[in-house]
Amino acid sequence: MLSALLLLVVQTASAAEQPIGFSHTAHIEKASMQCTDCHEGATSRDSAGLPSIRKCMLCHQFIATDLPEVVRLSKYWERKHEVPWERIYGFAKTAAVQFRHAPHARAEIACSQCHGDVASMTVAVEAVTHTMGSCIQCHRDNSATDDCLACHF
């Protein structure tokens, strides 16, 4: 119980303040969408990417238009603004890390391995802490390279 409470505190602490309370679980569990429907680059590019508001509005011009968060979304749309999403994952510039999503997707590393069970989250939180130790452990477990140059250049 205590650890669960602690986890909740940690999760709340790491949850970024998002402009819209986007529910991952509603899209993945209820609407049966895939992560890559919105984070298009995850399997093919360096960066998974955040979707443009145009992508949101493909559906939300017609679907669930009366929900409060969707109303907030359409206000951005009317003002012709992108939603200023806060990134919750990424490496500090000083870490000099070059991460590529595509080769990890090709190696069939599930999104949840590095991003946690996003499918059950409402607003995404930083559920997994990325450290060099965790990266190297996974690389070794999967007989991937552990050359420093693989990531640091």
Binding site: Q98, R100, L149, H152, F153
Partner: peptide, 26 residues
Amino acid sequence: PDVSIRPAGVMEKCTFCAHKIKRAKL
């Protein structure tokens, strides 16, 4: 963006464009 910016206090030199080697491999 494929090449890190080197901060003060570190050494740097030609890498044989290691990032381009990486890119070509990928």
